[in-house]
Nucleic acid binder design. Structure first.
Lengths: 206, 206
DNA sequence: GTATGTGAAACCGTTCACAGCA
DNA sequence: TGCTGTGAACGGTTTCACATAC
């Protein structure tokens, strides 16, 4: 069955709120209450969950711990993912430092950069390696996801290189669309598009 | 007429490609060719443009310079927007440095931070001010958009403060939904949601 | 002939409303 | 009684197909 990508993002949001609820000692929650917290329709939550099975108890609701566990399993968040960063500039190094103190399921293992001055530098918990090391290290370090934080002009080249090295998941921060074979998944993160949207609304609504 | 937000983001993408085409000296382009470049359906481009008027010539296509100009006008990208950053940590300072060398229509004018150690520091082209200065400076500096790059626990408070100071557009990098009155527009940028999506696909497609 | 602009059709995601079960 | 799970209705976006204009 085909599951919409937005539904997956909503599951992440549900998981975040469930995690807080669990920490607060809450044991059971209804779709209605969770929907209020997440700002969505109750039926939406039930439909999203129905893609994957039946996790609730009729007349009662969902057991917080159990549902959180199940959603984590669905999302693949029940393991540690090993990431590599390409491009240790402003954005890239911010990512490294940001994630090094995150207790989540994501861990940057290594970073690559073109600039010789940065090679050998330590940022957060990782060391910066030259681009040529990609082919060797991606496999040796068992990296599963590549984050691209280089300029738009070299994003495609870096992408090709990562794929050649065996990467199947790419998080692209460069403001360009990237071409990939179908066995590779790409997610594009581009806050300038969001900024443009904001400005459009500020322009048109006044 | 109600225009879908995704349509606006597509206009941004069209504009990017048109800009490159223009630089390369291209004068005319058809929806079919532009669609190939942008990875969308040709009818999609025509429909998106039709929300705002008629910009093409039948049998010919679109004049690149003219269409680019019109889209920029629609998006409100024909002016310089004045931004303020709240939260000059890893992500925040990366944003400042990143945007200070961007020749786009966005300019960070000032940054705010809670941490006394950071007050007075200069990052990129702006100086870090204390949070209390928000109320006064947002108006004095004629800031139109606030970017929130603080932790999830203080995002809502910062948001309220910005709105009280007169901000009508917010770019939220904190991984929480934010409550706002209807006259304020918010865009949420959250790469961890994208990362979760990636992991879901890597998990389920194997 | 060629490519736009646009009603109609197809598609997809969301919400409703209620049957089913604790 | 109360809340989940789900078929059906709804609403919105994308794509098709063709009339229209250069």
């Amino acid at each position: 069955m085909k599951i919409p990508a937005v539904a997956i993002s909503r599951l992440s949001v549900y998981a975040r709120h469930l995690s807080v609820l669990d920490t607060n000692g809450r044991e059971v929650i209804s779709s209605g209450h969770l929907a209020d917290l997440c700002g969505v329709n109750p039926a939406q939550i039930r439909k999203d969950l129905a893609y994957f099975g039946e996790f609730g108890v009729r007349g009662v609701g969902y057991y917080v711990k159990e549902l959180l566990f199940e959603i984590r399993k669905i999302l693949g968040a029940d393991k540690q993912w090993r990431l590599a960063l390409v491009g240790a500039g402003n954005l890239g190094s911010a990512l490294l430092r940001h994630m090094s103190r995150a207790d989540r399921g994501y861990r940057f293992i290594v970073a690559f950069d073109r600039n010789p001055k940065r090679i050998g530098e330590r940022i957060g918990e990782v060391e910066v390696k030259p681009l040529d090391a990609i082919d060797r290290l991606i496999e040796a370090l068992d990296i599963e996801i590549g984050a691209i934080a280089v300029g738009p002009e070299s994003a495609q080249e870096v992408c090709d290189r990562l794929i050649r090295a065996g990467i199947r998941g790419i998080l692209n921060f460069a403001p360009v669309q990237i071409q990939c074979p179908p066995h590779v998944s790409v997610e594009h993160v581009d806050f300038t598009l969001k900024l443009d949207r904001l400005c459009y609304r500020l322009t048109s609504e006044s």
